[in-house]
Amino acid sequence: MDARALTLEGRRPLPPSFFFKGASITALLGAGVSIALVISHVRLFTDPAYESFCAISQSLNCETVSQSPWALLVGVPVAAWAALGYLAFLALVSIRCDRPAAQQGLPGLALAVAIGFVAYSLFLAGISSLVIGSYCLLCMALYAVNFALLGWSWALLRRSKSPVFFEALALDLQNLFRTRPGRAFLAATLAAAVALKLFYPAYWEIRPAGMARDLANGLTAEGRPWIGASEPVLEIVEFADYLCFQCRKMHVHLRRLVERYPQKIRLVHVHYPMDHEVNPAVTAPFHLGSGKLAMLAIHAAGQGKFWEVNDLLFVMAESRGEIDLREIASRTGLSVEGLAGSLADAAVREKLAADLSYAVSAGVEATPTFLVRGKTYLGTIPEEVFRDVLK
């Protein structure tokens, strides 16, 4: 046996094909997890009844991470970019440039991409910890994938014809731009990225704006706003918070049902802001400012503008930024002075207190909660509740 074929430990070194296969399988795993994240992201925003398997706690919750603006990158979910990135990485370690001495893959470029993946993983991990305050299990799985790709790429580079990183990177870039397979890879990757940016639907924009405005609406005997059927077959009372994601998603879903069945369904809105400044049941800071939003909506109800302001507040609260009273006034016809004054109006606060008291009597502890035919439902309403009505 040729001693040069043995390592110092007396074992044959692993062939480059082993590392190519390891890198390829890991990249495919990353693409699979990314696609699972994309599916979860789509369902979170489009399926009112969806609950992610990793919505385990406040600090370990994929839904919280997916709802944050950091889940998007230039208007496309990060997970969708990740799926494309892993497939591109797979191509980088598989491509064969059409030169006589060319080797399989572009290990220098693959290592550079893996370094970028790891750097972005560390950035997102910091955002999850310091900004969002919650972690995503599937995201953490991708962090592990990225570190594994870094290891595979380093091993591939060490077994390549140019084991020095910058030399290999320069050679790979040369092959990428000067060979037909390299140019084909660039064209395909660029085309996929452009298509993703141009054609990916913005399903996360859950907005009731644009719905029919000619629906019957008014106030109940207790002064709570309703919309839909004057003599309903089914009345749904929603207890909602304008800063609650599920409230916004369910409200849009129910508004669409009311629009579809305006003679059968009535939706009644009751304010239940999970804001400790106005809600005695909330003992710690949570959904700060939602109490003020509720007061703006109560003022609007007194001016006959509740549903316009209600829809607008759900949209504006999506950004979690400061609410611009001037924008609300210009888009609804209310006065800035009246809106600002409502925040200190004793009558408005009394109505909010009445809503909170009603919610407590109905057994509401969180949002959204729905009261239908004397029974409360948390989060969503089962399909069987609508079965008889929607025949």
Rank of each mutant, 00 (worst) to 15 (best):
I56Q: 11
S59A: 14
P15S: 12
F89K: 08
I298E: 05
R255C: 01
R320I: 03
G363A: 03
I206H: 01
L124T: 12
F185Y: 08
L371V: 00
K292F: 03
S40W: 01
P273F: 01
L186M: 14
N217P: 04
A202W: 09
A71E: 08
A344Q: 15
F45S: 08
G223C: 06
S342I: 03
H269N: 13
L150A: 09
H276C: 04
L84K: 04
S230D: 13
L196K: 08
S121F: 05
I265V: 09
V131K: 12
Q174C: 07
L84D: 04
A36M: 11
A148V: 10
V360G: 00
A80Y: 03
P15D: 10
L312N: 09
G223P: 02
D241H: 00
L173T: 06
A82V: 04
T367N: 02
G22D: 06
A114Q: 01
V252L: 15
A191I: 13
I323K: 04
H287W: 05
C247V: 00
I35S: 09
A36R: 06
K21V: 10
P262H: 11
F89W: 09
H269W: 14
I132G: 06
R4L: 11
G116Y: 10
T380N: 12
V278G: 01
T64W: 05
E167I: 12
L90E: 08
F53D: 11
V233R: 13
Q67K: 15
T380E: 09
K197F: 15
A300W: 02
P69M: 12
R158L: 13
L169Q: 07
Y143W: 15
Y261C: 02
V33S: 01
S162N: 15
R178E: 09
